[in-house]
């Protein structure tokens, strides 16, 4: 390795910027466009972590990722206002997930209300449109509905439990390239 290259490296990582401890960064740097390589790197890494976890832990991987997601959901949602009304809670949840996931409350045309009661279960259909998990899986050529999806499940369940104080469960009904249908079962 030539000294010229080392000098060049030093030059790259040197600036005249004065950084004080009280300086609060208000913007992401660099700009999102320049973050593409980072985003793809993170997606690739996440995919490989999940693939390896599945290889080693088998079906146990789902439990690990679900648990991690649930903790994350509880952690994030504890700063949000508590709501007893499920509809308001879902509205709160969509604010919470903005930027990472976007979803809508959905019903088949033969159902009259969005809150459906069937076979002794009360549930709501949620259609997830934008989903960082789906992007990651497709980036890595992995199947949808596996352990990485469980992180989203845990996240939503944790957040709903935190906001409403009710126990909940999320089930996959269908996964697709553009949207996924989930069933939020309320207990």
């Amino acid at each position: 390795m030539s000294a010229g290259y080392i000098d060049e490296l030093h030059e790259t990582f040197h600036s005249d910027l004065v950084y004080r401890s009280e300086d609060i960064p208000l913007d992401c740097t660099p700009k999102p466009k320049e973050m593409e390589q980072t985003l793809h790197g993170v997606m690739k890494l996440n995919g490989l972590v999940i693939r390896s976890l599945e290889e080693i832990a088998g079906r146990g991987a789902n439990a690990v990722t679900y648990r991690a997601g649930k903790k994350f959901g509880h952690e994030v949602a504890k700063y949000f206002q508590k709501r007893e009304n499920v509809e308001e809670a879902l509205h709160e949840l969509s604010d919470l997930l903005r930027g990472q996931y976007s979803f809508e409350v959905w019903k088949p045309e033969d159902k009259e209300t969005f809150i459906i009661e069937e076979n002794g279960e009360t549930f709501i259909y949620l259609v997830f449109h934008d989903c960082i998990v789906r992007q990651t899986l497709r980036r890595n050529g992995l199947d949808q509905g596996g352990p990485l999806c469980q992180t989203l499940f845990g996240y939503v369940v944790g957040a709903i439990e935190e906001i409403t104080g009710r126990k909940a469960k999320l089930e996959i009904v269908h996964t697709g390239p553009n949207a996924c249908l989930k069933k939020l079962v309320l207990k």
């Binding site: 997606m43 045309e109 553009n178 949207a179």
Partner: peptide, 30 residues
């Protein structure tokens, strides 16, 4: 009206014979 726009049918159709109008296209970071 029962379609939620997952577009699985597009992916699976070997003849690419389907067309959906008025759909929300999900972000594609990948």
């Amino acid at each position: 009206n029962n379609c939620m726009g997952c577009l699985s049918c597009h992916e699976i159709c070997p003849a690419q014979a389907l067309e959906h109008r008025g759909i929300y296209p999900a972000r594609r970071h990948y």
